[in-house]
């Protein structure tokens, strides 16, 4: 009698642990996917902002046609790379977006060098908007990496690792800086203006 009760007790505990491990994995899997989509949302926002940005400053920055073109080109490349994005193909998207970040940083530094552009009042708003957009992309990546790391760790931990096969989990790739341009601090030569 007591043996049966103990056995049932053990089975109940095992059942409970199994179910909660499975649920935790599924929940983290969904959170990771969601965090990934959030990066896409923010990148799309940035892509939409760039044409407006270039139009606003086009008149005052005629001498910088090259930079403006570089910004537009980098944007188009990034959109193309992003159109087929999945968590598995992080590398390609990251490279394209990294290049875009690099040109945008150069572009912002150039805006600083144009006093008549800075004199107009809405350039402050524009700079704020651009800085915020960059931050949003960065924080979306950070949130993705945090969630993905938690997901990856949970997949390898006991007892959740026993349920990894049933929940069909696979390690999520983290978003890393692949482009050397993004890692280096941009240098701007202001003497030519």
């Amino acid at each position: 009698m007591i043996g049966t009760i103990v056995l049932i007790g053990i089975l109940v505990v095992i059942g409970f642990v199994t179910i909660s491990a499975y649920n935790r994995l599924i929940s983290l899997k969904e959170q990771t996917t969601n965090a990934w989509k959030q990066i896409d949302v923010q990148l799309k926002r940035r892509h939409d902002l760039i044409p407006n940005l270039v139009n606003t400053v086009k008149g005052a920055m005629e001498f910088e046609r090259e930079t403006l073109e570089a910004v537009i080109n980098a944007r188009n490349t990034a959109i193309q790379a992003g159109s087929t994005s999945t968590p598995a193909s992080v590398g390609k998207v990251a490279a394209a977006e990294g290049a875009l970040t690099a040109v945008l940083t150069r572009f912002m530094a150039l805006v600083e060098a144009y006093p008549n552009l800075k004199a107009t009042t809405n350039i402050g708003q524009l700079q704020e908007e651009l800085a915020s957009t960059e931050n949003k992309v960065a924080y979306a990546r950070q949130a993705y990496n945090d969630t993905a790391t938690l997901y990856n760790v949970t997949q390898q931990q006991f007892p959740t690792m026993l349920m990894a096969g049933v929940a069909r989990t696979s390690p999520a790739q983290l978003w890393e800086i692949t482009d050397d341009n993004e890692r280096s601090v941009p240098s701007v030569n202001l003497s030519s203006h």
């Binding site: 959170q31 969601n34 959030q38 915020s132 949003k136 924080y139 949130a143 969630t147």
Partner: peptide
């Protein structure tokens, strides 16, 4: 606020 909401999901 928007940025921090993204960071905090």
């Amino acid at each position: 606020v928007d940025e921090m909401c993204i960071a905090a999901s």
